[in-house]
């Protein structure tokens, strides 16, 4: 077990290193680090001589005259020491911005996962236990629809149905739920929930759909296993068999699947955060993209890669713990 963990961790570090190279290449091939400076010098009527001087200074400051490999080495050495450089746009340390944004995104993702897991297990158990029942057909149909919908479309419709319509029909002064950003600093728990509801719902919808299908299948699979028949023969009630034996066994593969799925969520939050003005990592990426802030882009990609790798590693380890056959 220890060997497995050590081996997988070593591989992850290696992949992370490779990812850093790939990220650096992607960002630097597509984006010129002088973009931010150029953009600001192109505004207003800056004296051309002064502009040329300011641009040359920035080029020197960023060390852009050196070969790309040397610049990569410099950046990587900084990152290894926890120095992510400063934002080219705001000149604030990248790490500080990332930290505050990451915390907001983590809140969104965490609640999204809790909701998705709870609903997915519920839906999966209901439809898995009664295969081909009316409830199963209805839930399966809904899952397919949810998986086939652009998530921003769902979000816009949700805003319409859950905020716009009730407010206008009932003439409320304040909307029932909010579609803009974080809770107000003074607001309590209820205020927090009213802000979180829609973004969390949007983020978890495709997860619920995919995971409930998975749990349903695992349930069906487990129901036909010999130990279930044995348990039933022993005289345990259907409820006891389902929850005590079937679900437990069905959840084992699900833990690894969900860990890998969660690792991919960074892509999903971009759209959700944009619609709900959620001040998290997704918004940070969009801002960095429109500014051409290469330092911020690099940090963003590295955080996303580390997050995904970490969860893949967790999936591997969980797999090893829960399924002894995988340890070899």
């Amino acid at each position: 077990m220890v060997r497995l963990v050590a081996r997988r961790t070593a591989w992850s570090v290696l992949v992370l290193f490779a990812a850093s190279t790939l990220c650096f290449v992607i960002v630097r091939v597509t984006t010129d680090p002088l973009t931010v400076t150029r953009a600001s010098l192109n505004r207003g009527d800056v004296d051309p001589e002064a502009a040329a001087r300011l641009l040359a200074d920035e080029r020197d400051r960023l060390g852009l005259h050196r070969p790309l490999a040397a610049q990569y080495g410099h950046w990587l050495a900084g990152v290894a020491h926890g120095d992510w450089g400063e934002s080219l746009e705001s000149h604030r340390p990248v790490a500080a911005d990332v930290r505050s944004r990451l915390w907001n995104t983590v809140q969104l993702i965490a609640f999204g996962i809790v909701l998705a897991v709870a609903v997915a297990i519920l839906v999966g158990v209901v439809s898995g236990a009664r295969q081909y029942s009316a409830a199963d057909h209805a839930l399966s149909g809904l899952s397919f629809v949810a998986l086939s919908m652009p998530s921003f479309w769902f979000a816009l419709m949700a805003i319409e149905v859950l905020i716009y319509f009730p407010r206008h029909a009932l003439h409320l002064d304040h909307p029932l739920l909010y579609s803009v950003g974080l809770h107000s600093p003074s607001g309590g728990l209820l205020d927090y929930a009213r802000h979180l509801a829609l973004p969390v719902m949007t983020l978890s919808l495709p997860l619920v759909a995919a995971w409930s299908r998975y749990i349903r299948a695992s349930m069906i699979d487990a129901l036909s296993a010999p130990y279930v028949q044995a348990a039933t023969a022993k005289g345990l009630s259907r409820r006891q068999v389902l929850l005590g034996h079937v679900l437990r066994n069905a959840l084992i593969p699900f833990t690894t699947v969900s860990a890998v799925g969660i690792g991919q969520l960074f892509g999903g939050v971009i759209v959700t955060e944009a619609i709900f003005s959620w001040p998290g990592m997704g918004q940070l990426l969009l801002q960095a993209l429109s500014d051409g802030d290469t330092n911020m882009l690099l940090a963003w990609l590295m955080v996303a890669a580390t997050f995904a790798l970490g969860l893949n590693l967790l999936a591997d380890i969980l797999n090893g713990v829960l399924d002894p056959r995988a340890r070899s």
Partner: peptide, 19 residues
């Protein structure tokens, strides 16, 4: 001033009385 950078979110916020 609430920062809302997406134009559809901006409009939705006004239409729903959040702005």
């Amino acid at each position: 001033f609430k920062v809302i950078t997406d134009s559809s979110a901006y409009l939705a916020a006004y239409k729903t009385g959040q702005l």
